[in-house]
Design a protein around this nucleic acid. Structure first.
Length: 424
RNA sequence: GUGGGUGUAGCUCAGUUGGCAGAGCACUGGGUUGUGAUCCCAGGUGUCGCGGGUUCAAGUCCCGUCACUCACCCCA
């Protein structure tokens, strides 16, 4: 039995965006470039991992693990999961290959697709694209600030302005348990619906960033982690803010902020954009003290971020920031007749060998149609070749920005075009 | 996973109490086999999301389903 074409034709899987043209890669590469400038090395990671890696690394009680993972058994009976986030995979790789046995910190960056089974909406996808960095092995607030500055520089480089950086500290293992108890006692006294009470039971911190006004109202007097930091965590937090000031990175403190992944400690942050609707986070991350040890490695801490490429692109559109609209080609060939086309195919090939992006009108279109195609290609120059030019040993080089045209020798035409592009 | 809104041409959308499917843009060709982004003419623009029901008759009413979208939730 062969599968039938579904009514209406095949479509991409639900919640999976597709990008045509230079915009997506332009946004992604701009974000990556800032990480490269700060010395983060690329790491190419598997798109799926042992399911247990995420269960243990991200946390069983998180929504990401408990109801959003794409998990399946492979043909060998192993349970594998399409990666829902990047940090666990990086840490696993660092441990597995002993990358933490050399100089510290280990600074790595990655990019690619991640997968979460969620209900899609504007800015929320089942296949999402992230750029991330991780700096592992050194617990230095200056490193937290560097990570934040790299993310901020990426968004600035895109031309984004209408976002803010929110930061807080989630404390460390010495004081968080007792804070958690205090918060739980506070929440028990509130008038909350059943779903929220359940959330409070699983992870009381999560209740703090509830968006509903009637809930927020009750939370104004809630105890906050930021007021219950250990001396060390408080000093760390103060140092991060000091470094951010020195780096010229603007931020606001948001002590109600919570992260959905269990591994975060101390510094946590989120980049929030106001023009995207309810999915407003364009990036987020923080420090994770216990994750390396949790996954079987040395007891080293790390800090990192994940930036949403899809959402950054949406933000660029909202702000009408300078998205890359670079033309596909610089030169476009317009042949008149078969003999001219034979010759032009070779010339276009020579241009490409010389490193010039070039295309030509295929399909035997008329002159008008071919010129139209040249216009649409975004090329700076058109190369028009007909019988008359062939006899004269010439080819017409037309500047499409002002319409001017000059005849150049057919022999060595590629070199002449190269010069014309350099002069323009 | 829960609740609301919307599905008509490639895109943006009209479509009357149920009565012959439309506009603009884009696309292709021609006006001009030697010149594009202007103008003129012509032309595909279509399972009206899909399936079923009511009716002489459904884009229009009803049910289901799928997709998109907004909010909750969650997060990038």
């Amino acid at each position: 039995m062969t599968a039938a074409v579904p009514p209406g034709g095949f479509s991409a899987p639900k919640g999976v965006p597709e990008y045509v043209g230079p915009e997506f890669t332009s946004v992604r590469d701009t974000l990556v470039r800032e990480a490269d400038r700060a010395g983060y090395a690329h790491i190419e990671l598997p798109v799926f991992e042992d399911t247990a890696l995420y269960a243990r690394g991200v946390g069983e009680s998180t929504d990401v693990v408990s109801k959003e993972m794409y998990s399946f058994d492979d043909r060998g009976g192993r349970s594998v999961t399409l990666r829902p986030e990047g940090t666990a995979g990086v840490v696993r790789s660092v441990i597995e290959h002993g990358l933490d046995r050399g100089g510290l910190p280990v600074k790595l960056r990655y990019t690619g697709p991640f997968f979460r089974y969620e209900r899609p909406q504007a800015g929320r996808f089942r296949q999402l694209q992230q750029v991330g960095v991780e700096a592992i092995g050194v617990d230095d607030p200056a490193l937290d600030a560097e990570v934040l500055a790299v993310a901020d520089a990426g968004f600035r480089a895109l031309g984004l302005r209408r976002y803010r950086l929110e930061i807080t500290s989630l404390g460390d293992a010495t004081t968080r348990p007792q804070y958690r108890q205090e918060l739980t006692r506070f929440l028990e006294k509130l008038d909350l619906d059943e779903a929220t009470r359940e959330r409070a039971r699983i992870n009381p911190l999560r209740v703090l960033d509830d968006k509903r006004p009637e809930v927020r109202e009750q939370l104004t007097d809630a105890p906050l982690m930021i007021d219950h930091l250990s001396d060390e965590a408080a000093a760390h937090h103060a140092a991060v803010k000091r470094h951010l000031d020195d780096l010229g990175v603007a931020y606001v403190e948001n002590p109600w902020m919570v992260r959905g992944l269990d591994y975060y400690t101390k510094t946590t942050f989120e980049f929030v954009h106001d023009g995207l609707g309810s999915q407003s986070g364009i990036g987020g991350g923080g420090r994770y003290d216990g994750l390396m040890a949790e996954l079987g490695g040395q007891d080293l801490s790390g800090v990192g971020f994940g930036l949403g490429v899809d959402r950054a692109l949406l933000a660029c559109r909202v702000e009408e920031a300078g998205l890359d609209t670079a033309s596909r080609v610089e030169v476009f060939g317009v042949p008149l007749g078969d003999a001219a086309k034979d010759r032009l195919v070779g010339i276009i090939g020579a241009l490409r060998h010389a490193g010039i992006r070039a295309d030509l009108a295929y399909g035997g279109r008329g002159l008008k149609g071919a010129m139209k195609a040249a216009d649409r290609s975004g090329a700076r120059f058109a190369l028009v070749l007909g019988e008359r030019d062939l006899e004269a040993g010439e080819i017409q080089l037309k500047d499409l920005t002002d319409g001017s045209q000059q005849a150049i020798a057919l022999d060595g035409a590629a070199a002449a075009v190269d010069r014309a592009l350099e002069d323009s």
